[in-house]
Structures are given as C-alpha cells and as structure tokens.
Simulated assay, not measured.
Amino acid sequence: MTSIVGREPISGPSAWRGDELSKSAEWIYVLSDAERAELEDLGRRFVADDPDLRTVTATDYRFDACRALNDECARQMDTGRGFVLVRGLRTKEYGDVMAAAIFFVMGLHLGRPIGQNQRGDLLDHVIATSDKTLSDEGALPSRVRDRLPFHSDSSDVVALMCLRGAKEGGASSLVSGTTVYNELLLRRPDLAPRLFDSYHWDWRRQDPDSPELTYTSPIISYVDGVFSTYAGSSMVFSAQQYADVPKLTPDQVEAINLFDEISQHHGLPIDMDFQPGDVQWLLNYAALHSRTGYVDHPQPERRRHLLRLWLKRDVGRPLTPGFGKHVVEMGEPTGPPLAGGRFRIADAVTVNDDWGV
C-alpha cells in the first residue's frame, strides 16, 4: 500500500458538483411497483417475526424484485458518486414501525448494522429532543435544530430514512470530499499536505458515554489511487479543550478552516428536501453530509424525524492506517453495552428522548 500526497486533482465519478448534479434526477432511484410491494411484504413479515436486531441477517429476508435496487445502491456507494436517494415508500400509510422494518431490511442487504452509541443501539434517531443549540454543553448534533457543518459519521455507510420533515428548512446537504480537496489543492497547494496529518477528534461530544475523550485520524487518505475523506472541523476544534491534546499549528487551523469553507461554497453541495419515505444511502469516505437549520412543527408528534443506520460494509477499500474512527470496530461499543439499548424494531423506532439531552 502506498500513500502519496500528490499535486494533481483527483478524478472519477466521486468528484461531482452539486450545481451540475442537481440539474438531473440521476441520483434519485424511484422504486417500481414490484420493488415497493416486495419491500412492504418483507416489512410486514419483519414486524410479525420481531427478530433480535443484533442477530437477524439478510438471508432471513431475501430480495427478488429488489436485487437491481440493491445492486445500484451498492454500485453508487462503492464506485460511483458515493450516494443515492431511494424514493417511493408509502410510509404515511403503514406507520413508523413498518417503515423502520423496511429500512432495517434494506440495510441488512448493504452491510452489517453497527452500534451507534455505548448502549449498542443499531437504529438511532435524528430529531430535536430539546431546545438546546449546538454550542450548548453536551448537545449532540443529531438532537438539535442548528445547521451542521459538513462532516463524516463513524461508519462505512450512513443511511437516513425520513419519517417526517420539518416545518421549515432541514434540507439534507451532501458535498463531494474529492471536489472539496481538489478545490483546496487549486487554491492553496501549500496547505493540502496538512489534511494528511493525524488529528485528535472529540469522541466525548459524539457519545456522552465514550470510554475516552478523543481518538485520532487524518482528514484525507489516499492509498493506491483510492481517495477517502473523514471530516468534521467542529470535532477537531472542540477536542482542543482537553489538556493532553496537542495544540493545532497555524497551518493546520488554516487548512481545516479552508476545507470547511470550501465545502460550503456555492455550487459544490447538493441539497435535497426529504419527503416522508425517502431513504438516503451514503458512503462516508466519498461524500460529506450536513443539513440546513430548521424549524419544527409545534406539535411534538410532527417533529422532523429521521431514522439512522450505520453500516459496516467491507469492499476492500484501502485506507491509511488509523483512518476514521478506528478506536473501535467501526462504531461497536468497546465493552458490554450499557443498559438501555433497544433491540426490537418496535422499541428501536421509539425516540430515546433521554439521549443527548
């Protein structure tokens, strides 16, 4: 394996611009009647079977009509633009539990669901559970209404299903990590090497029950011609509060800030307004994700509510040693899960309001 900091831009299907991509619907996969019917049948059976989410496998819920859907999602994540939006599920008709069951079955066919916190929850929620803002002590990004900076999650794949949208705002935003790097390389080639440095990331802010305060990772990996990104400036900067974390150099601060600034540059991101039933599949190494700030409906039951899956998907992708959240097995708890984990679909789809408040 070789890792080279080059001065040439990275090419390929993952190097897209949002203003160009949004001119077409090529990134949206609309379910056929047969695909939707099969997913609904599998969802009903999943709810009736009520399997343990920790042990159920894709072979228990085989695809037939949805094989092409699954192949396209896998192709786009592994070797394509890095993401796909699947549209056409009628979640309003059959409710949250069956919607979550369908989402989980789809996830089983694309990877292995992994724990998203020290409780071991395999299905988590993106929903505002208080009126905290991102700057408040202990606030989790998934549980506030603020705009989020572009970042990566702690998995190979992150998937979102929209159960309910916001009253205003709350668009899901994606940006190509490859395109952001290429633009930074064009503007400031002298700063590009700093993205390959290893940084401390604030683990405690990502998970209040984390066993350590931080872990380390570079922002960019380029190994054997394969480019990957792991970004999240707020977690790098907040880690600076801990006494044992080395202070960032001026060049490192400038490089991180410029990477974040470019990711928000007009024309680079693509924004999508989630509709109920939409499912977004994203390879964390190919694209960064964010959302715009939003206003909720006043009724608690109408709050913006997304379900989230983290998947381990082994496609043999070469990565720089110590890249990403390598301190654990891609998001797995470091020991026996803490009390409170929910491993049945009807329990897992209920918002854990005590998390991140």
Score class of each variant (00 low, 15 high):
residue 231 A to C: 12
residue 161 M to L: 13
residue 74 A to F: 04
residue 328 V to L: 10
residue 144 V to D: 05
residue 18 G to D: 14
residue 346 A to K: 15
residue 21 L to P: 02
residue 338 L to H: 14
residue 172 S to P: 00
residue 34 A to N: 15
residue 257 N to A: 13
residue 164 R to M: 01
residue 112 R to T: 13
residue 283 L to H: 02
residue 33 D to A: 15
residue 130 S to V: 10
residue 350 T to D: 12
residue 179 T to D: 00
residue 4 I to K: 10
residue 58 A to P: 05
residue 346 A to I: 05
residue 193 P to C: 03
residue 108 L to M: 09
residue 58 A to Q: 14
residue 257 N to S: 14
residue 62 R to I: 12
residue 275 Q to S: 10
residue 58 A to S: 15
residue 284 N to L: 06
residue 110 L to T: 09
residue 187 R to N: 02
residue 80 G to N: 05
residue 260 D to R: 10
residue 296 D to E: 13
residue 153 D to W: 05
residue 272 M to K: 13
residue 174 L to K: 07
residue 348 A to T: 11
residue 166 A to L: 04
residue 318 P to N: 07
residue 167 K to F: 01
residue 352 N to I: 06
residue 191 L to A: 06
residue 195 L to A: 04
residue 162 C to F: 00
residue 39 L to A: 06
residue 140 L to F: 10
residue 67 R to L: 08
residue 9 P to A: 11
residue 146 D to R: 11
residue 249 T to F: 02
residue 237 F to A: 09
residue 357 V to H: 06
residue 69 L to W: 08
residue 154 S to W: 09
residue 306 L to T: 02
residue 344 R to I: 07
residue 135 S to H: 09
residue 279 V to S: 01
residue 233 S to H: 08
residue 125 H to F: 08
residue 166 A to T: 04
residue 199 Y to K: 05
residue 268 L to Y: 11
residue 15 A to C: 07
residue 325 K to L: 13
residue 159 A to I: 06
residue 301 E to F: 09
residue 207 D to M: 12
residue 297 H to E: 00
residue 137 E to D: 13
residue 185 L to D: 02
residue 23 K to V: 08
residue 300 P to C: 07
residue 220 I to K: 03
residue 104 F to V: 06
residue 187 R to Q: 13
residue 89 L to Q: 12
residue 139 A to P: 06
residue 262 I to W: 06
residue 89 L to Y: 00
residue 153 D to N: 10
residue 4 I to T: 13
residue 174 L to V: 12
residue 335 G to Y: 07
residue 313 R to V: 01
residue 92 K to A: 11
